[in-house]
């Protein structure tokens, strides 16, 4: 049985959940949590693409046989570290916003907007 299909479906579902959280939340911390979830979904998709049925991890310590594709692994590793960098920038913007306006809620920045 090929496990790639449920992994792809899970990646799409987790990405959609991240979009949902991004829409419904107004607090910057929870928006950052949703961004982190969406980034994890992309990494799940990359790792699922690299999977080879019946293979093993790409470390060549003696055993033969099929190996997983190592290029998406390197790409996913780069994406994880860069994601940590951009989340740090987002969180520092949140802290700067709290220092200036006294709130971390995006809604309270626009008090004249009655529809939200």
């Amino acid at each position: 049985m090929n496990p790639q299909i449920p992994v792809f479906i899970t990646a799409a579902l987790v990405w959609a959940i991240g979009i949902y959280g991004l829409i419904i939340h107004r607090n910057m911390i929870q928006i950052c949590v949703s961004l982190s979830i969406m980034e994890s979904a992309v990494i799940i998709l990359l790792v699922g693409l690299a999977f080879v049925p019946g293979g093993s991890a790409p470390i060549l310590d003696g055993h033969t046989g099929p190996f997983a594709d190592p290029v998406p692994h390197a790409l996913a590793l780069t994406a994880i570290v860069i994601g940590a960098g951009f989340l740090a920038i987002a969180l520092s913007l949140t802290v700067a916003m709290y220092r200036k306006y006294g709130t971390a809620d995006v809604k309270k920045l626009f008090p004249w907007d009655e529809t939200q």
Binding site: S40, I43, V47, A68, H73, L77, I80
Partner: peptide, 18 residues
């Protein structure tokens, strides 16, 4: 999940960072 899908390096990075 990454460790099950043959991506041990990515699994270690995700565990440490996330």
């Amino acid at each position: 999940l990454f460790a099950m899908l043959q991506a041990v390096d990515v699994a270690m990075a995700e565990a440490v960072i996330g």
